[in-house]
């Protein structure tokens, strides 16, 4: 191996983020293969990973994993810089912002399920805002809102429960 004057030394932080991002990317690639009745409705399984990272390592790591997931996931399924990529990015950013606030809710009363539901609704809100302003500048878009809200409710609940289960099973030593 040739010696390079530039050497990137990954820190423990980098490795940990890369590991979780890899899991999140794998989940988003898997769910891209699941047929859905309405375009734009997805289970958002990668958000389980985001919630786990948020609970264990905090918001900064969750942002890293989430954005790496959006960029690398879209590269893998060939959607990078396509409309779907920007919708995904808008949803992820909106989710991360509200998660940054929701994580300060008292943990005694609010668990991953609350965070998951709040993030899921923020996700559709961010997506619809970008879609309305840019992709489909017509109010007819909002007729889809009830279906997106129902999907966010069901998948937000399911992902939150999954994250709670994972956090319980693999409590860091």
């Amino acid at each position: 191996m040739t010696l390079s004057p530039i050497e990137l030394v990954p820190t423990a932080d980098d490795r940990r983020i890369a590991r979780y991002a890899a899991a999140a990317i794998a989940l988003s690639v898997v769910e891209a293969a699941i047929p859905m009745p309405l375009p734009g409705v997805k289970p958002g399984l990668a958000n389980i990973i985001i919630l786990v990272v948020l609970a264990r390592y905090g918001w900064r790591d969750a942002v890293w994993v989430s954005l790496l997931r959006v960029v690398a996931g879209s590269l893998l399924i060939g959607q990078f810089l396509a409309p779907g990529f920007f919708l995904s990015l808008a949803g992820a950013l909106a989710s991360l912002i509200v998660l940054g606030l929701a994580m300060h809710l008292p943990a005694r009363l609010f668990g991953p399920v609350s965070q998951s539901l709040i993030a899921a609704f923020a996700h559709i809100a961010g997506q619809l805002a970008v879609a309305r302003l840019w992709l489909v500048p017509h109010d007819g878009l909002f007729y889809l809102l009830p279906f997106f809200a129902l999907a966010a409710l069901l998948f937000g609940l399911a992902n939150g429960l999954a994250a709670a289960k994972l956090l319980e099973e693999t409590r860091p030593a």
Partner: peptide, 28 residues
């Protein structure tokens, strides 16, 4: 067994979003 993950606030958040979703249903 999944019910044990639901904290009181989680139920409140779930009900609030379920109510919001139900309120949106007529739009469809």
């Amino acid at each position: 067994s999944f019910l044990r993950f639901m904290k009181p606030g989680d139920w409140a958040v779930l009900l609030a979003f379920a109510a919001a979703t139900a309120a949106l249903a007529p739009v469809a």
